[in-house]
């Protein structure tokens, strides 16, 4: 077993130190941890997987919390184009669309009430700000992303919105 992990470590080091070539369309995969804010200044822990290729990014995030019989689970998918408007190329902006899924479950273990589950979906825009540093094939990444959603058709006309903000750091690889 020890030799297996030694082999894995050797392969990982060999992969990292090999000079970057034009590989699979410059794909970056970055698993990340996140602090999620749902417009109430209360931070919740979340996880995500960010992927970037040829100036585009597809990121998926998940977070949730349990309190008493209530279980909340949320997922946010953002799709957008990333570009660097400044001479400082490590800083990129992302803009595009986002899709949100929010599930709330009422799970009664001891009480007589029936369990209940609701899932809502919403679509909106997204703005992302990303700093990344490439160390050979290793990608160190920090980002600040927001999905902004109109509060229904009537509310959206009067600029009423809801927002999910994700501040994250990640360590990934360039394929």
């Amino acid at each position: 077993m020890k030799s297996f992990w030694r082999l894995v470590a050797c392969l990982a080091v060999a992969y990292i130190v090999t000079p970057v070539q034009q590989g699979l369309a410059n794909i970056q995969l970055v698993p990340s941890i996140a602090a999620v804010d749902e417009s109430d200044d209360i931070l919740k822990p979340g996880i995500g997987l960010k992927s970037y290729f040829n100036g585009f990014g597809v990121n998926i995030w998940g977070w949730g919390r349990d309190y008493g019989p209530v279980q909340q689970r949320s997922m946010l998918l953002t799709l957008g184009k990333y570009w660097s408007p400044y001479s400082f190329k490590s800083l990129t902006f992302g803009g595009g669309i986002s899709v949100l899924s929010e599930t709330t479950r009422l799970i009664y273990k001891d009480a007589q009430e029936e369990n209940h589950e609701d899932t809502f979906y919403n679509g909106g825009g997204f703005l992302g700000l990303r700093y990344s540093y490439n160390l050979s094939k290793v990608v160190i990444d920090a980002s600040w992303e927001s999905g902004v959603f109109p509060a229904g058709i009537g509310g959206g006309l009067f600029l009423a919105t809801g927002r999910k903000q994700i501040v994250s750091i990640g360590l990934g690889a360039m394929l």
Partner: peptide, 16 residues
């Protein structure tokens, strides 16, 4: 001009 969100949840509609 537009409605604000300052940590109280999402923004309310614009004042009319």
């Amino acid at each position: 001009v537009g409605p604000l969100s300052g940590g109280q949840g999402g923004s309310n509609p614009l004042s009319i």
